[in-house]
């Protein structure tokens, strides 16, 4: 079973065809940035894991959900379904983005629920990046084009195993 948190800012029914998936439509209408969308979706996943029986499903050998995903951008929404199918065995520290290419936008992230919520908890911290500690995108206008690169950077920075699905 997969758990997919979708920002309410995406109007399209992108996830209609996903099999064996529980969809969480997260109210992001008040969000000012997509970083906030991700943070809200991460919290929604954590709360959903908690709400089943008052205890957290993170602590079990046989979790109900094998993967968790966050979708915040309808653009570049490709390959999500096959990725979900292929990464059913994502380990506790593995997270997968639609692409690691700095010239492409990140639109979704999926992986082991532990990895996804840990990464999402840091989303607000890369909202206003300190370029002194993120020199890769400091001066290069091309690299700086997509602030979603920060999302990949922070995933590496907190020790997750990071993969890109489509290159």
């Amino acid at each position: 079973m997969n758990l997919v948190a979708v920002s309410s800012n995406i109007q399209d029914n992108l996830t209609a065809d996903l099999k064996d998936t529980h969809i969480l439509k997260v109210d992001c209408s008040q969000s000012k940035t997509f970083f906030e969308d991700i943070a809200r979706c991460g919290i929604a996943i954590e709360k959903h894991f908690l709400s089943e029986d008052g205890k957290s499903m993170f602590w079990t050998d046989k979790p109900k959900y094998k993967t968790a995903s966050i979708i915040w951008d309808r653009d570049f929404f490709v390959n999500f379904a096959p990725c979900l199918e292929q990464w059913q065995d994502a380990r506790g520290d593995e997270i997968i983005f639609n692409s690691l290419d700095v010239y492409k936008k990140r639109a979704w992230a999926m992986g082991n629920p532990r990895a996804v919520v840990k990464w999402a908890s840091c989303a607000l911290n890369v909202e206003n990046i300190n370029f002194a500690v993120f020199p890769q995108s400091g001066t290069d206008p091309h690299l700086n084009k997509f602030p979603t690169s920060r999302l990949v950077w922070i995933a590496y920075r907190i020790g997750l195993r990071v993969y890109g699905y489509s290159e």
């Binding site: 993170f58 602590w59 506790g92 520290d93 919520v117 908890s121 840091c122 911290n125 922070i154």
Partner: peptide
């Protein structure tokens, strides 16, 4: 720090 705290708060489900 801000980010360190967010990660520290997640330690409960990291059982490695």
């Amino acid at each position: 720090g801000a980010r360190a705290a967010n990660i520290f708060n997640c330690r409960y489900y990291d059982t490695k």
